[in-house]
Design a protein around this nucleic acid. Sequence first.
DNA 1: CGGCCTGACTCGGGTGTTGGCAA
DNA 2: CTTGCCAACACCCGAGTCAGGCC
Length: 556
Amino acid sequence: IYIAMEVEISVPSEASNWWEEERYTDGSKWKFLEHKGPVFAPPYEPLPSNVKFYYDGKHMKLSPGAEEVATFFAKMLDHEYTTKDIFRKNFFKDWRKVGENKSLVNTFACQISQTSIQSRVIKIKAENERLLQEYGFCIMDNHKERIANFRIEPPGLFRGRGDHPKMGMLKRRIRPQDIIINCSKDSEHPKPPPGTKWKEVRHDNKVTWLVSWTENIQGSIKYIMLNPSSRIKGEKDWQKYETARRLKKCVDRIRNQYREDWKSKEMRIRQRAVALYFIDKLALRAGNEKEEGETADTVGCCSLRVEHIKLYPENDGQEYVVEFDFLGKDSIRYYNKVPVEKRVFKNLQLFMENKEPDDDLFDRLNTSVLNKHLQELMDGLTAKVFRTYNASITLQQQLKELTSAKILSYNRANRAVAILCNHQRAPPKTFEKSMQNLQTKIDAKRGQLSDAKRDLKSAKADAKIRRDEKSKKTVETKKKAVQRIEEQLMKLEVQATDREENKQIALGTSKLNYLDPRISVAWCKKWGIPVEKIYNKTQREKFAWAIDMAEDDYEF
DNA sequence: CGGCCTGACTCGGGTGTTGGCAA
DNA sequence: CTTGCCAACACCCGAGTCAGGCC
């Protein structure tokens, strides 16, 4: 029976790991692709008739469509942004387009009962599980792969990040006729819901997405794609780190080059060289131009404006200090004061001459010019490779330096990278409280410890007098208890330090997107730390290739 | 070439849910 | 064993990057 089972249950063999398979060389991403299509947002269920809508003090009957949009607003009532002018204006404008209330609504004297809406929250776990099993997977070539986002985004009110000019606009419901399906010809095509049609079914194996539609706020395309654990994502991720490792080999040459270029006769070359220096040294993002009025006003390196930096020939005893202060991606503030080389400083002065605060700092430069130049320096080199490279190399160096209290060290190394990449978060709402709780726990633990120590002492004294087996045993148990409590106390103290240091720093992004996982895996192997301490289940799935490949001597 | 636009993909912090643990 | 809390996690969906095509 045992043998039969071994044969029956085919344990995934070595060869079934995608990283041990051959890649396509013709630019195609797959040969076979079959899936069940998207899951649509559940239809709107009108409110029961006892829930009334009041406008300007008067009871009003809304069309189902208008009512739905009203509930979108109601759901957000406890958020600050519903009080914002732009949000309200955008919402109202879109709301009036829905149903027959065009001429009716124009001010905000309305009240919508929020509790009545919250009370309608229904969740069915079993249904979710069924949907996951049915729609959550696809077949790509010879693998069954998990899909990242098989649910279509439900309608609602758009909330961009930062000061977004389109906040409050209605994000409309996506219907089957908005959907483009991508799958292979020889697969069983997904069926649209009864009585509906897809916009299109295509068979494009030069792309990785399964489903796409156009979103109505920015007019951009949204996709359904595979989970990070999939071959197609993993391969790309691996490739990303390999590119960064190639940069490691030639980064000295490139650095020498841009330092030379600081002296160039040509303005565009000087600008390019200074920008590249920032990208390298400060891990700034490239900074594409953005359409004004369409999104929040944020910048990256190439789109930096004069108003975003200040020059100090001398500051706090340091020479040639540049102060950066701007809103970057997701309107996260970047604030940093850095001493720079004299030549960089002089160049910046030159770039800022005769300019207004809202003029571009690098007026002869944009991301496409920069990336074309980088491409010439190294195959596959773009601005963001520097971020990956500097993040990973920093982690590796930090891990080499820090050795005691392993997990804390790892988190500190991770933190150094997050700081480099400016990955910030709002301190958790409950931070102060939970910190206090932790402190009381620590105090309690300390009390416990001294109690346990006292117990131990008396037990020892007791044992000395009695000299029997039983009291000896008691001493042993008490000793163990003291030890256990000491360990617990240590753990708590480490936790407190860790949490305090982590207050405003988001570790997730760098861990998931910038740090070559093989560095972490190798570190775990070297110090005999279970990889589970560093990566949770999802992360282990994403980085399965790295966990399998990296030995303890892996060098980034 | 350069400006502009589109498409496809990675990166990003926030939030709702859950499960593990201490009281 | 039950309960209540909180951190960890999964998911969400917006915001970037970058290449390629067109004029």
